[in-house]
């Protein structure tokens, strides 16, 4: 069934991101922008970002999906916060 981009699709994508066994992502924001569904946030690896994109496109082939998900950096901290 073709599905146009509406609130129900937005909700289904949000649940897919969390409940799909290969994704389990709760930190991705799902936005409806004009005719596009935008996914943004950060994940721990490129593989996880790619899997999100693949799963969402496969589940909603008629929805234009824009993926703007970054990989969280893991550099050491440059400075400490003094809480005195």
């Amino acid at each position: 069934m073709n599905r146009r981009l509406d609130e129900y699709v937005e909700a289904d994508v949000q649940r897919l991101l969390t409940e799909d066994v290969d994704l389990a992502e709760q930190g991705i924001t799902v936005l409806r922008r004009e005719q596009n569904l935008v996914l943004c946030g950060e994940v721990e690896s490129q593989a996880r970002r790619d899997e999100i994109e693949r799963k969402v496109r496969a589940a909603f082939p008629d929805v234009a999906v824009l993926v703007d998900i970054g990989i969280t950096r893991t550099q050491p901290p440059g400075e400490a916060e003094d809480l005195s």
């Binding site: 930190g27 946030g41 950060e42 721990e44 969280t72 950096r73 893991t74 550099q75 050491p76 901290p77 440059g78 400075e79 400490a80 916060e81 003094d82 809480l83 005195s84």
Partner: peptide, 25 residues
Amino acid sequence: RNVAHPVIKQAYSVFHLHARARAAA
């Protein structure tokens, strides 16, 4: 302090604490 990795955007944050930190807050 919220130290969720996507919030701090680094491997870890470091806090320096002193015995009287709360009294000074």
